[in-house]
Amino acid sequence: MSGTDGTRRSMILAETVNGLTPVLLAFSIFLTFRGHNAPGGGFAGGLVMAAAVILRYLASGPEAVRSLRIDPIVLIGAGLALAALVGTWPLLDGGEFLESSIWKFHPPLIGEMKLVSSSLFDIGVHVLVVGVVMAVLVAFVEADDEVARANAAREELRSNAGHDDASGDPGTTTSGGER
C-alpha cells in the first residue's frame, strides 16, 4: 500500500482536484434543484457530488473519505427516508402518492420564490446516491486494509516458520502491493 505515505501521489492531480471540488459541489446542487422541470435531478446531481468524493479519494487516498466523518450508511438511510416521506406526505391530505405540491414564498429583495415538493424528493435521491457511492468506496478501502493486514500477518508467520509453504497463494501476496 504505497498510498498512505503520500510520496507517490500526483501533485498535479491533487491541485486540480482541490480547484475542481467547489465547482463540482456547486454544479451538483444546481443539477439537483433544477431537476423538477429541467434536465438534471437528484440522481445526476448525486453522481456529480459522488464524483467529487471519488476524485478526492484518487488524489489523496483513503484519508479523503475518512476525514469526511460521515457514515455513508446514515446518508443512504436519511436520503431514502426523506424520499419516502415526501412521497407519502400528499396521501395525508387526500392527494395521490408522489403528488407534487408547490409552495410560493415572497422573501424580501429577491422577489417570488418557488419550492416544489418534488425538489425535496430530489434532495433525498441526491443524498442517497452520494451515500451509496461513498459506501461502495469505503467498503473497498476497508476490504483492502483487511487484505493488507492479513498479508502482513501471513508474511510474519512465514518468516517465523521458515519457508515451508512458500508455494501457497502467490496471487494474494503479490497483488497486495500493486495498488
Binding site: I76, G77, A78, L80, A81, T88, L91, L98
Partner: peptide
C-alpha cells in the same frame, strides 16, 4: 402505495 412505502421507509429507518 403504502404496501410498498412502509417497508421501504422501514428499510431507511433500519439503515439509520
Amino acid at each position: 402505495p403504502l404496501a410498498i412505502v412502509i417497508p421501504l421507509g422501514g428499510a431507511a429507518a433500519a439503515l439509520l
